[in-house]
Amino acid sequence: MSNPVHLIGAGPGAADLITVRGMRLLQQADCVLYDALVQPEMLAYCPQAVLIDVGKRCAKASTAQRFINKMLVDAASKYARVVRLKGGDPMLFGRATEELVALREAGFEAEVVPGITAALAASADAGVSLTSRGVARNVLFATARVGEGESASDWISPILAADTTVLYMGVRQAEAIAKALLGAGMPASTPVLVVENAGLPACRQWPMRLAQLPDVGDWQLDGPAILLLGQVYGEVLRAAQDGLRQFA
């Protein structure tokens, strides 16, 4: 019986945030197809493997999903141990379903190894829990982005109902997101935290209010960024404002 193809979550970036199981499978792999967000330090875990860059990154030049599916099936046909290394967690905005279906339709088994998603790394970097007693009892992971050929969905209503929201792939749509949420009645004073390069030494954070969010779309951010909204970020915002007043 052949080995299953493993879809492994690389985590938010830092090489030592991958799971032990994920690292072990990388060390045994014959071929690794990896995303653009995977750090070179993590690829050092698999010097024995054939490395294939499939360059999947939102709003950047990247390999179309159908070609990734084909390359994955071709690799499974050629190599005994194949790993598909995906940034964050494969099962959260990672298009894992398409790849799992492609593999299984081609007759290959596939298994998923979870990874740390960017929301958890950003929360750790900020030192702010996504949930907090008496403030936030639920967390929503959402995206406002609509891919080519996809139908739009109602992402606004769930955000209005959530205590804490993490918006993936939202920085380039920051102005439209802010306009939609403000228009739907979310207070302009709602605390927002923008986190770039979560889980990496180069992590940067910007606390602000929802009314200030439109400006973010004009920033030239080098790394992947996510938006976090909710009252749990109020203290971070107040601390940042106090710091600015001290130097005024």
Rank of each mutant, 00 (worst) to 15 (best):
F67A: 12
P90F: 05
A142C: 15
E109H: 06
G94Y: 03
R66Y: 10
L72R: 05
K78S: 12
I8T: 11
L72F: 01
G170R: 05
I8N: 03
I159T: 15
A102P: 08
M186T: 06
L228W: 00
V82S: 02
R95D: 03
F93L: 11
D35R: 10
A106K: 11
S77R: 15
L213A: 08
E111H: 10
L160E: 09
V194M: 14
R84K: 11
V112H: 08
A36L: 02
E98F: 02
R204F: 02
L7G: 04
R21D: 01
A124F: 10
Q48C: 13
A180K: 13
T19H: 03
W155F: 11
V113A: 05
L17H: 03
A202V: 14
A144M: 03
A76L: 05
A162E: 01
V112P: 03
R57L: 13
Q173D: 10
K60A: 10
P201L: 06
V139I: 14
F93N: 06
D218R: 15
A240N: 07
G149T: 10
I156Q: 13
G88M: 08
G230S: 05
A15R: 03
P224L: 10
A36V: 00
M208G: 00
G149S: 11
N69G: 06
L140H: 10
M42V: 02
V216F: 09
A122T: 07
Q212Y: 00
Y79G: 03
V112Y: 10
V195C: 15
C46A: 14
L160M: 12
A144C: 12
L51R: 14
L228E: 04
V73M: 09
P114N: 06
A110P: 09
S132L: 08
R104K: 15
Q205D: 04
A161D: 06
I177L: 03
G94W: 04
G149Y: 11
P207Q: 07
A14D: 15
A59T: 07
L167W: 03
A144N: 08
G22N: 00
L72V: 09
R66Q: 15
L33G: 08
A118R: 01
F67P: 00
A198D: 02
F67M: 06
A64Q: 14
A152P: 03
Q39F: 00
S189Q: 15
E105N: 08
R145Q: 11
V166S: 04
T190Q: 09
A75F: 10
G11P: 07
E150H: 14
S157G: 05
L237A: 12
V113T: 13
S2N: 11
P201E: 09
L17C: 06
S189F: 00
L33D: 08
M42A: 09
F93I: 04
P207G: 11
I68Y: 02
N138G: 11
R137E: 12
A161V: 07
G217N: 05
I226D: 04
W219S: 12
L7Q: 13
A76C: 07
T63F: 02
M91G: 14
Y79V: 08
L160S: 02
E41I: 12
A126I: 06
N69W: 05
A180M: 03
E235G: 01
Y34A: 07
L181Y: 09
V82E: 02
S153G: 14
